[in-house]
């Protein structure tokens, strides 16, 4: 990628700290040893996303993929590191410039019921933001909302209804229409189809693909469903306990995963084309992010772990053009 990426993350970390409460502070005054608990939800992640690219971000619960998505969308501020939009640090922008940059990045959530205000009618949910941001005048809002609803495959005559009057798939379409209404360039989809039935999932996935084609949107598609990511993404980033372990073009990754965790994860994916298979699971569970293992986070579950893996965290290294992986095995 020679052109400046649309969005870049530069060593972004997000830490959540549970501060000591009054009682614990008093215990400490009397010689107790209570410490603040820190979760490194996202640990030093760098990532570039080119214009028009669909990047799939996968990992299991607690790996920090949603937190990373929220940092990108500006819901959470990064604890350290920079988020660059078209080459410029969003934090360094101010006023109108910043508003414009953040408006261009929109997020679509997992649960459409909890992300839509149940007391607002659809026309207000979709129409409010573009009006407030001066994208359309008050007189044109009604037409604009109609166009947005048609765009996502909803009948505009339903626009006076409330969210609870729609089915799950339709609600997710309302969430998409709301995001599209402010004319974004970049969509962060956080498990956006996970709560939907299979046949409805296919409808929404197709909608995402159509929108990409018609509007040239760039996506960060966060999902635990590898089948969906494989179908949609150009590039896949795999996270484990807050760190990126592998990032590669989708076809290459699924054909030949490099990192032992990526390999284990891909093998576990139930596929409709594989029958009566013998499941051979990775051992162990995902460790608590409160006390991640030293060195490489994956070493307690890794079949290839060496003494070095316990002590030293492997860095992400390029193993092929456009492909990076964080594993000591690649250095041999």
């Amino acid at each position: 990628m020679s052109a400046a990426p649309l969005l870049a993350l530069d060593a972004v970390s997000k830490r959540f700290v549970r501060r000591l409460d009054a009682a614990e502070k008093i215990v400490n005054l009397f010689g107790g040893n209570r410490r603040e608990e820190v979760v490194h939800a996202v640990d030093n992640v760098s990532l570039q996303i080119a214009e028009g690219e669909v990047v799939g971000l996968v990992g299991e619960s607690g790996c920090g993929k949603s937190t990373l998505g929220r940092v990108v969308a500006g819901v959470h501020a990064a604890s350290s590191g920079r988020v660059l939009w078209r080459g410029r640090d969003i934090d360094s922008l101010s006023g109108a410039e910043r508003r414009e940059a953040t408006l261009k990045i929109q997020m679509i959530f997992q649960d459409p019921m909890s992300s839509l205000n149940p007391r607002m009618r659809v026309r207000d949910i979709v129409g409010e933001a573009p009006r407030v941001h001066g994208l359309v005048s008050s007189g044109e809002v009604a037409d604009y909302v109609d166009r947005m609803l048609l765009r996502v495959g909803l009948d505009p005559s339903y626009k006076s209804r409330y969210p609870h009057q729609f089915s799950g798939g339709q609600r997710q379409r309302i969430g998409i229409a709301r995001a599209l209404a402010v004319q974004p360039d970049f969509l962060v989809c956080d498990e956006s189809i996970a709560a939907l039935d299979v046949s409805i999932q296919a409808q929404v996935l197709n909608l995402f693909m159509d929108l990409r084609e018609d509007l040239g949107l760039t996506y960060l598609f966060i999902s635990h469903d590898l089948g969906v990511v494989e179908h949609l993404a150009d590039r896949v980033v795999i996270m484990y306990l807050g760190r990126v372990v592998e990032s590669a073009p989708a076809a290459e990754l699924f054909a030949d995963p490099n990192h032992p965790y990526a390999r284990a994860l891909l093998e576990e994916v139930p596929r409709i084309d594989t029958r009566k298979r013998v499941f051979q699971p990775v051992k162990g569970e995902i460790p608590s992010p409160l006390a991640p293992p030293t060195g490489c986070h994956f070493h307690p579950r890794c079949p290839h772990a060496m003494p070095r893996c316990r002590e030293e965290a492997p860095a992400l290294r390029e193993i092929a053009p456009g492909r990076v992986s964080a594993c000591h095995l690649n250095e041999a």
Partner: peptide, 24 residues
């Protein structure tokens, strides 16, 4: 038929998924 077509599978990357119109 429709249900199976709705599931993304390895050999149809990037293609449109078969969708069952409407809802239950």
């Amino acid at each position: 038929h429709g249900l199976i077509g709705s599931v993304p599978s390895q050999n149809r990357r990037g293609e449109r998924l078969t969708q069952i119109p409407g809802m239950a």
